[in-house]
């Protein structure tokens, strides 16, 4: 087991000096999934943005982010960008906002691929189709010629996943990718992500507010609250014996959702 990404003592402050993320440390191992759980405003999204170098300009960060022995903060912007595109892929809550509204999906794939790799247009298109069929989109040539607004939320998220995987990244950062979807589509996307992780040796940093999904998807779970990681450990430990009060409450809530199967509390 090797450590792929390590975040050490990450601190994020705003201009007024208020601490938004406080001394967070965690590590991501090859082929494993780390789930970062927290309510909105807990700093989980900021943490992922710090790794992607996408923090808003008015925030200051300190700490160390190490990707395969390279200290990301000491790299030049240009080098970081090529790493970000090639080794870290990302998907977000609102794929419609991340996709270009007036360029067909297919061309966005080709452009992305050709900006990183020396491949022909034909080759890139073939790759894009392959990726799209891998995320279980059936009519790939139709999707390639569509615009983002013509597709449903679930379809767009699949397109985003395919795009994130196009350059075969080592890490996939998924920031609440299913929160805007309905339960049925959510289950399909989560299932897809699980399959993809099992098929490749990719690692995933999964950010969510839903302990239930992490229970299904993650190997390691970190619970974040008010900018601090209050508890982290293997899924088995966190779910069976949560230590922190907040984690216990989350666990209790999840169990309650399955009350029933014959004994419905409502009479």
């Amino acid at each position: 087991m090797t450590t792929l990404l390590e975040v050490k003592n990450l601190n994020i402050r705003n201009k007024e000096g208020q601490s938004l993320v406080h001394n967070s440390s965690f590590s991501l191992e090859t082929g494993k999934t780390y789930a970062l759980i927290g309510e909105s405003g807990s700093g989980k999204t900021l943490t992922s943005k710090a790794i992607l170098d996408m923090l808003p300009a008015h925030l200051q960060m300190s700490g160390d982010i190490v990707l395969q022995g390279e200290h990301l903060q000491q790299l030049s912007r240009k080098r970081w960008r090529s790493i970000r595109g090639g080794q870290i892929g990302a998907i977000f809550q609102h794929p419609e906002q991340a996709l270009h509204p007036s360029i067909p999906i297919g061309r966005q794939f080709v452009d992305l691929m050709r900006s990183h790799l020396p491949v022909s247009r034909y080759e890139a298109e073939k790759q894009a189709k392959k990726m799209l069929s891998q995320v279980l989109l059936k009519d790939t040539s139709h999707v390639m010629s569509s615009y983002a607004h013509e597709l449903s939320g679930g379809m767009n998220q699949r397109v985003m996943i395919a795009m994130a995987l196009l350059l075969k990244p080592k890490i996939l950062i998924a920031d609440e990718p299913t929160s805007a979807l309905d339960v049925k589509t959510q289950a399909e996307i989560i299932f897809l992500l699980k399959e993809l992780i099992l098929d490749t040796d990719m690692s995933m940093l999964f950010i969510t507010h839903d302990l239930l999904i992490s229970g299904y998807l993650a190997d390691t779970i970190g619970v974040m609250r008010e900018g601090k990681i209050i508890e982290q450990g293997s899924k088995e430990n966190i779910l069976s014996a949560p230590e922190h009060e907040y984690t216990q409450e989350l666990c209790r809530h999840c169990s309650q959702r399955f009350l029933g199967k014959g004994e419905i509390p409502y009479a």
Binding site: V183, K184, Q186, A187, I190, F191, L212, I213, G215, Y216, K235, E236, L239, S240, C251, C254, S255, R257, F258
Partner: peptide, 18 residues
């Protein structure tokens, strides 16, 4: 039933660990 089963796969994993 399909709608109900959407959460079933999470449930199975959940019951396994708690």
């Amino acid at each position: 039933v399909t709608l109900l089963n959407s959460s079933k796969m999470f449930e199975t994993a959940w019951n396994q660990w708690t």
